[in-house]
Amino acid sequence: MDNFTSNELSQKINMYLDRSLNEDDQKDLIQRIAQNPEGMAQFNREKNIREKLKERVQRHPVSPGLIARIKNSLGK
């Protein structure tokens, strides 16, 4: 298993957390960071940041009125 450069590691972590890494590469990354405390710390930090961003962006639930409008416009 060749070592990743820091850029490669960073890119793979981003792709993993962005659900855009294929299954083999996911397994490979998990194995690598399990043996690399710095990589694991970077992974956890990136994951944490994404979770915090998601928590802080407000959801906008649809009003019952809008659902009724949609259903009505569809003929229900």
């Binding site: 850029n7 981003n14 930090r45 940041i49």
Partner: peptide
């Protein structure tokens, strides 16, 4: 060539 220092969500942002 060196994206790491800016591509990551670094400590400060956390």
């Amino acid at each position: 060539d060196d994206q790491t220092h800016i591509s990551s969500y670094v400590d400060l942002r956390e």
